[in-house]
Design a protein around this nucleic acid. Sequence first.
DNA 1: CTCCTTTAGGTTGTATGCAAACATTATAGC
DNA 2: GCTATAATGTTTGCATACAACCTAAAGGAG
Lengths: 149, 149
Amino acid sequence: MSLEICKMMEKGALYHKRLMTKILERFGLTYAQFVVIKAIYETPGITAKEILSSQDTDKATLSGILSRLEKNALIERRNDPKDKRLVHIYLSDASKRICEEVTKIETNCQTDLLKGIRTSKTKHFIDGFKQVLKNQEKLLKQTHEKENS
Amino acid sequence: MSLEICKMMEKGALYHKRLMTKILERFGLTYAQFVVIKAIYETPGITAKEILSSQDTDKATLSGILSRLEKNALIERRNDPKDKRLVHIYLSDASKRICEEVTKIETNCQTDLLKGIRTSKTKHFIDGFKQVLKNQEKLLKQTHEKENS
DNA sequence: CTCCTTTAGGTTGTATGCAAACATTATAGC
DNA sequence: GCTATAATGTTTGCATACAACCTAAAGGAG
């Protein structure tokens, strides 16, 4: 039964990624790139570290994504004059527009996801999901501790 | 709200992958490799095409995974004498044992996922999830059709 | 049998995802 | 001021994920 749950989550994540990939195709963006752009859109001048803490990715991956975005003139990296380790990231006007447009499409699409589920049951679904995530986090932590002992 | 759902599914899939990666570490296997091995375990002599239809991956990806598994002597590829296009895949004894052991661990871990959710609500959760997946499939199909028109 | 299409797999190129090693810059302790 | 250490990013290597292209073999139409 719970094995089913993992498969369902994998499937759901995969479907979402595929849908967004298809939507982003004509903008020449990948899903991972769009997710990063959204973060920069919300916090102009954000640093790489801040993007990492707001999402669940890796700094190496992010570095590559940012390089590709910069190569395509979708973002700009500016060094912090005070702390030279920091790099502040800004969107170009073009990517701001793209971000707004795609976000609109994404929101429309995702409103459909709960169709066919009675409103009274939606809360149970969401709450159940949150509990599963909590259980997963606990399991991950335990496995991690076991390894270090 | 539905945006939250997609993020939750992505998170859940990610956590599961990380947990399995950690478990599989000492067996020298990746999660993707283990998933393929499970499919071969269930159907010895399975073909690549059959693995693809039972899972949601790509033949290019699968081809690479199989090559790496074969290089490590975990599987064996045998050509079909009648239809020379077909390649039947078999597990080595070593990978059979690994598959059984890891499956046991996986099952134990995953039983914990529904902890803290009242049994009466579990069904709502599962049913809601199934409906979300259905809605996703419909959306994907629509987007695909729109593209081809 | 011959040509055309389909099918099963493999190969190549680009973009992650992630661990591990590096390079720079700050900062704490002395 | 100096050194050890921590923090921030980038680079490198390996394993997917996936689109696009290629190969060989099987099947069907004529």
